[in-house]
Nucleic acid binder design. Structure first.
Length: 952
DNA sequence: CGGGATGAGCTTTTT
DNA sequence: GCTCATCCCG
């Protein structure tokens, strides 16, 4: 895309006023937003600091920044402090600068300082929350009744986050501004939902959906004796509707005690977090909102002349409100696509975009209730629709719309006309229109998918477009998208059996993989010789359940397994044990690799015992902690990812697998005893009562009725499929196993039975070995990268005018040249890199993740980063880091960075000589660097941490 | 055809 | 714990 199309140009030109941009999939949104930004800041009286550009991920922010630099008069350096960031990071910045007294605005006697940390790890926060709840419940016997109804205290943290995302905050003795309103619910809004759901169906011959749902009223429930009988709630036999009075009856309930419980937990947890010197992501937004709301001068000071929000369909209610406070004028532009809103579980409110105008009015009214905070005109609101799609063929674009109107179950109905009315159809701009849209089905879905992929690769019927030309597809052109990680993992292991190159992209639950489970089993055997280990090992060895039982009872373990046990017992390190287990079972894939690296990295940080490792793996399994996995650039392999992870990406050929019937577990509040739903307010689903002589937990009949009134529906599920389909550029294949779901049945595509016939690919190119999993960092203060050791001021004078984007480009060239070889240099830096690489003789590795554990002041610290290039020869290993910088002022600073990698490499290759060099791409010179010792590094880190704390 | 009982199966992930 | 599909009955 070189020149904007007309609609894109409209958006670029429309700098003033409120704009809502419907930017469908593949319509060049980033391109347009970055051009618009460039035009805004290129105006004489506008500086980058006047323009807020919000994205939803840090990656997106980085990409935006880089693309903006390429398009405007500002360089990377000038834009490095520009507010192009996520809401969370903006809030963090504001709090660090102005938030010192923000807690006092909620009646909390504490301060936010430079040492207040953002707790990023959910599991760590849960642990702290549990500790908080233990203390809280001890201190507040008056809330005992509520705690007895709550099984899992952590659900209260979920409730707090949910309330925070809606802008409901506690003050010392009540609720911030009009927050309490939300907790009481809104009867009128509720009754509308109730009435809608209570309409008889089939022209009056069939009971309403609500009455039908209440069919099981009272089954397996224990209500207080004053609860109405089923007949009273549903209407008698033959009735078609729930009596209208039930709405009021169910809604009205005394909830002062409940509100006060939630208030106290919420408020005291805020205070607890601050006393422990941390904030979670929700609290960043909470305190920023409070600060901007209360401090009118600060708001004026911070507010931006232009506000642009990307991916607006992913924003939450509080973020919408924050955006209003942050806008100094009505130059507000939100860009998004309601059809791609799939993150409600992260509090995204699709209504922010679908009901933009009414929400705008409502939120502005609320904010202006007691003081005019938003003083700009909220009209006119101009809509702009980007309709030219640069990704997919017209056939795919048209087809994808079906997903949005397809019922997901026999009981599900879609108002097709209303949905179609809302869809802005896209028009394809691709050069070729050669799409195949197919569907396959077989019980052995994994094999069927692989068979299909083998049929596609190299097949002229599935040509893909590259540089306006058609060519036969390769493995790398195919992506398998699934809803669940599990399916992806299973598919991957089947592909591995056949040697078909396939790589997973996204988060995997590393510790729940087979290699991890087996390692855990053997460690348990070595440590405890207990049943829990043996059972797994025996089952893996092919024993039936009965046989396993017998062996366990008689403790007559098979000789070969006993022998293997003594082999393991003789090994000195846990790393050695892991290695031996994996080789015994033939686990040589990426999972085993990473587990090994993980084990070894934890090991080298401390003296890890087998018991420690058992607990380490157990915790990993329990928490389901995920590790990001990605294939190396340039690898020709099929990509497997979840649809969520694929959002924003594109693939020539998409296989949408696992289109099977699914019933999802209870959605929304899960089984939390205390829930919050906007129109209904705060509800307790179970209550503790001992009015009747003995303690008992009762179900709440009101809550049971109310819950039926809030159908979650399948809209987001439909949007998920829409996202999946619109990833495809040229071809789309659906696949199902035993139970194709209604989507597949209702889509206008023939589902063909496909008899699996996977050929052994046995390719040495199999990507499992090349798969990279980011090595998890062990406990301890993390967040160090070698860059944190370097001093910024050293670099200020050495701008060679080309910026970071240039370096990235050269870097990418190097990576592609090493991996693919067949790349032509396009500038001098790349030519220097090319001839340098040509001059190297050994094995080359690019982008190696390196992670160095150290002990600083008795605490474990890990520095991790990426080595640009590793050059391996039989007797020597060299680390090379590319720098564009001509000035050389910074060589000493670079030395710190290189030293980190040096020590990692020295550990990886204990028998070889290790050296570290900087390669200056501008003039093609190489400079060898003397590494610092580990103790020097420790000192540097200690110093840096010291600076951190003294800076408060 | 509608209503009721019964049994099976069970996410996604960013800050 | 919740929903869907399925079966059986009226």
């Amino acid at each position: 895309m070189t020149a904007p199309n007309d609609r894109q140009q409209d958006l670029i030109d429309s700098k003033a006023g409120i704009h809502v941009v419907d930017a469908g999939a593949g319509t060049g949104k980033t391109f347009t937003v970055t051009r618009r930004y460039a035009e805004i800041v290129d105006q004489d009286d506008v500086e980058p600091e006047d323009v807020l550009l919000v994205t939803f991920t840090n990656n997106a922010a980085t990409e935006m920044r880089e693309r903006i630099v390429a398009n405007c008069d500002y360089g990377m350096r000038e834009l490095s402090d520009a507010p192009i960031q996520t809401f969370h990071s903006l809030c963090h910045d504001i709090l660090m600068e102005h938030g010192f007294e923000a807690p006092t605005l909620l009646g909390i006697d504490d301060r936010i300082t430079g040492s207040t940390r953002v707790l990023e790890d959910e599991n760590v926060e849960r642990e702290r929350f549990r500790e908080f709840v233990r203390r809280f419940s001890d201190d507040h016997p008056e809330h005992d009744d509520f705690f007895r109804a709550v099984d899992e205290p952590v659900e209260l943290l979920g409730l707090i986050n949910q309330l925070a995302a809606k802008g409901v905050f506690p003050t010392a003795d009540g609720w911030y501004r009009n927050g309490e309103r939300h907790l009481d619910g809104d009867f009128e809004a509720f009754r509308e939902i109730f009435d809608e759901l209570n309409q008889p169906r089939n022209g009056g011959s069939k009971q309403s959906e609500l009455r039908s749902k209440l069919g099981g009223y009272g089954n397996d429930k224990c209500y207080l004796p004053d609860a109405p009988e089923e007949d009273e709630v549903r209407g008698g036999w033959g009735e078609k509707q729930v009596p209208a009075t039930v709405a009021r009856l169910a809604f009205d309930e005394e909830r002062e005690a409940l509100k006060s419980f939630v208030h106290d937990v919420y408020h005291e947890y805020l205070a607890f977090a601050l006393s422990r010197n941390y904030l979670n992501f929700s609290f960043l937004q909470l305190f920023t909102f409070v600060l901007l709301c209360d401090d009118h001068r600060l708001r004026d000071d911070v507010a931006f002349e232009y506000v642009m929000i990307d991916e607006f369909q992913d924003s939450s209610e509080i973020q919408f409100k924050l955006a209003l406070l942050l806008a100094d004028t009505n130059n507000v532009c939100v860009v998004g696509d309601w059809k791609q809103s799939i993150y409600s579980f992260q509090y995204a409110a699709v209504e922010n975009i679908t009901e933009f105008e009414s929400r705008l009015d409502r939120f502005v009214d609320e904010l202006n209730e007691d003081h005019e905070r938003v003083s700009w005109a909220t009209r006119p609101v101009t809509g702009i629709e980007l309709v030219e799609n640069y990704r997919s063929t017209q056939a795919i674009l048209d087809f994808s719309e079906h997903s949005l109107v397809t019922p997901a179950a026999s009981t599900d109905d879609v108002d097709e006309a209303a949905v179609r009315d809302r869809i802005v159809s896209l028009s394809s701009n691709t050069a070729h229109e050669n799409s195949r849209i197919e569907a396959i089905r077989h019980e052995d879905e994994h094999e069927a998918v692989l068979t299909k992929i083998q049929e596609i690769v190299g097949n002229d019927a599935y040509q893909v477009e590259e540089d306006d030309e058609l060519r036969p597809p390769e493995y790398g052109d195919v992506a398998v998208l699934t809803r669940t990680r599990d399916f992806g993992r299973e598919l991957l292991s089947v592909a591995d059996e056949y040697g078909l190159p396939m790589a997973y992209e996204g988060g995997i639950e590393l510790f729940r993989s087979d290699p991890a489970k087996l390692l855990l089993a053997w460690l348990r055997i070595l440590e405890f010789d207990g049943e829990r280990g043996w059972a797994v090992v025996l089952e893996e060895a092919g024993y039936t359940l009965d046989e396993v039982k017998h062996v366990l009872e008689s403790e007559a373990y098979p000789d070969n397994l006993r022998a293997f046990k003594s082999v393991l017992a003789s090994l000195e390190t846990v790393g050695g044990v892991a290695q031996r287990v994996f080789s015994q079972y033939g686990y040589d894939g990426a999972y085993a690799d990473v587990l090994l690296t993980t084990v070894q990295s934890v090991h080298s940080a401390t003296t890890l015992t087998r018991g420690d490792l058992v607990r380490f793996i157990e915790r990993g399994i329990e928490e389901g902690s995920t590790h990001d996995v990605h294939a190396s650039a340039g690898t020709n392999s099929v990509t497997v990812q979840t649809i969520h992870a694929a959002k924003g990406l594109e693939h020539p050929i998409v296989v949408l697998a696992n289109m099977n019937a699914h019933r999802f577990p209870p959605s929304g509040g899960n089984s939390a005893a205390i829930t919050f739903d906007d129109p209904i307010g705060l509800r307790q689903r179970k209550r503790y009562d001992d009015d009747h002589g003995h303690p008992h937990i009762y179900d709440s009949w009101r809550s049971d009725v109310l819950r039926k009134c809030l159908p979650r529906g399948y809209d987001e599920e439909r949007r998920l499929l829409y996202v999946a389909m619109t990833r495809a550029e040229s071809h789309l294949v659906f696949s199902a196993g035993e139970n194709p779901n209604t989507f597949l049945e209702d889509l206008p595509v023939d589902v063909k039975e496909l008899e699996p016939d996977v050929q052994d690919a046995d390719s040495s190119e199999t990507t499992q070995a090349r798969l990279q999993i980011a090595v998890p960092t062990p406990d301890g203060p993390v967040g160090h990268s070698p860059h944190t050791l370097m001093r910024d001021d050293v670099f200020e004078d050495v701008d060679d005018g080309r910026g970071t984007a240039f370096g990235t480009q050269t870097h990418e060239f190097a990576e592609r040249y090493v991996l693919e070889g067949d790349v032509d240099p396009s500038n001098d830096d790349e030519r220097h890199v090319k001839s340098f690489i040509d001059s190297l003789d050994g094995e080359l590795r690019v982008e190696e993740d390196a992670s160095l554990p150290l002990t600083v002041d008795g605490e474990r610290v890990t520095i991790s980063g990426i080595v640009d290039l590793v050059h391996i020869r039989p007797d020597a290993v060299e680390i090379i880091d590319f720098k564009t910088d001509l000035g050389r002022h910074a060589e000493d600073e670079y030395r710190k960075q290189l030293s980190v990698y040096y020590h990692v490499l020295a550990e990886w290759f204990p028998d070889r000589e290790v050296t570290a060099s900087i390669f200056y791409t501008a003039d093609g010179t190489r400079v060898e660097v003397d590494p610092l010792t580990e103790s020097d590094l420790v000192e540097l880190i200690a110093e840096e941490q010291g600076l951190d704390t003294s800076a408060q």
